[in-house]
Simulated assay, not measured.
Amino acid sequence: MHDQVGRWRYTGYYGFPERSKRSEAWRMLKQLAIDFVLPWCIIRDFNDMMTEDEKKGGRCHPRALLNGFSETTMECGLLDLGFTGDKFTWERCRGTERWISERLDRGLATSEWRSLFPEAEIKVHALSTSDHLPLCLQLDKFMPLRVKDFDLRICG
């Protein structure tokens, strides 16, 4: 089944937490999109959001940052893979009046990658000792992909 998929590219990503460096992160994503032509999947902590409903608590996220990240993903030909599980993947000050939750972690992929793995999904796992919830990429809903006796479900 998947043994005929061919080559594709996975990138584990960590975006700059400083807002002043977001445009630098977006330039890097654009360069990565140009540098390789393989079907591409990129997952983890982008330290960015696409819409206002990806944040709960605290001040509103600047519109320029929301637009910048969304425009960058479109320019790179990246589609959000969606997810199952908790909507917010990062939090701070839980249980206080300053509690903030955001969706900073996600999976993105090109349409070429998506056509290779149409059943792929990202699962957000609720148990974590970190301020970020772990993500797990499952390529096939029914059977994990095995290559050389390694389970290729990618968890971050």
Rank of each mutant, 00 (worst) to 15 (best):
D105A: 05
I154L: 15
E97F: 06
L116K: 15
T96H: 03
G57E: 02
T110F: 07
R146L: 14
M49Q: 07
R9T: 08
L127E: 13
W40V: 04
I34H: 14
D48I: 01
E102L: 09
R7N: 10
E91F: 10
D80N: 09
R114K: 13
L66T: 08
R92I: 08
R106N: 02
Y13R: 01
E102M: 12
L65T: 01
N67Y: 09
R114D: 04
E112Q: 14
G82P: 01
W8Y: 10
F69I: 03
G15I: 07
R19A: 15
F46R: 01
R27H: 13
E71S: 15
F117L: 04
L65K: 07
T11N: 08
I34M: 14
T51M: 08
L104F: 03
A109N: 02
R153M: 09
S115K: 13
R44S: 13
A120P: 02
L127A: 11
R114S: 12
F36H: 12
P134S: 00
S101V: 01
D86S: 14
A120G: 08
P39C: 09
D45S: 05
D80I: 01
R106Y: 08
N67G: 02
R94P: 09
L139D: 07
Q4D: 14
L32T: 02
L145M: 08
E112A: 15
I34E: 15
L135K: 05
L66N: 10
G82M: 08
L116I: 05
P62F: 00
L145F: 05
S128C: 02
L38P: 00
H125R: 14
T84H: 11
E18C: 13
K55V: 09
S70C: 07
L78Y: 04
Q31N: 14
S70H: 06
F88H: 06
R153N: 15
H132M: 04
L108W: 13
M28N: 12
G15D: 04
L145C: 11
R44H: 10
K123L: 12
K21I: 00
D151T: 13
C41K: 00
L116P: 00
L135N: 03
D131E: 06
T129D: 14
E112C: 09
H61G: 04
T129M: 14
M143F: 06
S130F: 11
K141N: 11
S101L: 09
H61L: 00
M143K: 11
R153A: 11
K21V: 00
E119R: 09
C136S: 13
A33I: 01
A120W: 05
M74T: 14
I43V: 15
R103V: 06
L29N: 01
R92A: 08
D48Y: 01
V124G: 03
K148T: 10
C93S: 12
I122N: 05
Y13D: 00
S23I: 08
G156E: 10
R59V: 11
D35A: 12
M74E: 14
T96A: 02
M74V: 14
R153I: 05
R114P: 00
H61I: 09
E112S: 15
L65F: 13
F46Q: 01
K21C: 08
Y13H: 02
Q4R: 12
G107L: 02
